[in-house]
Design a protein around this nucleic acid. Structure first.
Lengths: 158, 158
DNA sequence: TGGGAATACTACGACATCGCAGGAGTATGC
DNA sequence: GCATACTCCTGCGATGTCGTAGTATTCCCA
């Protein structure tokens, strides 16, 4: 978001669903980034810490989950390890790989970030009122639609 | 998205609306990027070309619209100008500023990119079926909610 | 109407993202 | 058992993002 004065948001009608989604996500990301600066995490990083706190994943799983290339995840790992927020659990199933978890420090930072994050989330939910559930359902639909569109676009598999 | 084999998408329930939105947008962006590679534009760039083709904006307006810092827009301008896809219209109202429009070339590229973009969009809309309108409404609600949450977070103005 | 404060943008540098190429472990066919 | 193909991950380099600081123009009011 620009550090400048109040420029009215240009009212250009999103021409389609994907456009709408793009705009919303940019706004959400910007807002989260702002709320999280003091925690030292970006919105993306916070999201990753959140999944990892919930369940250790391999780099590839993480990449799939967040629709990012593996190289990006690789640099995440390097960064998070350097911060001492994440460690590797050996993966007995496949010794080429490993699982990522938060360290104690990582969990603490995530916790703190969560505190910065919550007020904004609550404000959004409050603004949505009873619509929250409907919006979440809509997002789930869109996700499913993207998924199915993806498979129809790519014939064979992969 | 990873260039690797079929790893099942980890089923971690998005814990809240913003999380859901984040996931969806990553997926959408990845998909669009992939569809657009042959056009030479990224999803973000395509979005920007699209607004500019619709209406010339100043850098600041563009920054507000896409919730990006002005410096990012600045580098966009540089890049797009270097490609010969965008030019500056003098802004009589404010000589510090200017308006951005697509050149003929830029319009052509945008057109081409639109052709790459359409099938994916149609597939998503098809997968959504009658829900498309509802989803778009939900996204609009979320956008509005973000907006109002933002103003409540920032007391006076800034 | 003159001059400080505000605003629009840009330069530059730090760091993030991600494509390409490659090394290490695993699976499969023989 | 071993050769070969495959998958998992990393190093490197090109490019993109964005914060800090600075210049140009406009606004505002004394």
């Amino acid at each position: 978001m620009p550090a400048t004065a109040d420029v009215p948001t240009p009212e250009i009608p999103g021409t389609n669903v994907l456009f709408d989604a793009w705009l919303v996500s940019r706004a959400a990301n910007a807002q989260l980034d702002e709320a999280l600066v003091s925690s030292g995490l970006t919105a993306d990083e916070f999201a990753v810490y959140s999944v990892l706190s919930h369940e250790p994943l391999t780099p590839t799983e993480l990449a799939v989950w967040m629709s990012a290339p593996l190289t990006t995840v690789s640099s995440y790992v390097k960064r998070f390890e350097a911060r001492g927020h994440v460690t590797r659990l050996p993966n007995a199933d496949d010794r080429r790989s490993y699982r990522l978890t938060l360290t104690e420090d990582g969990a603490t930072v995530h916790q703190r970030a969560g505190e910065r994050f919550l007020p904004g989330l609550r404000a959004v939910e409050a603004a949505l009122g009873g619509e929250t559930a409907a919006v979440r359902r809509a997002l789930a639909s869109l996700r499913a639609a993207l998924e199915s569109a993806r498979s129809s676009a790519e014939p064979g598999h992969r």
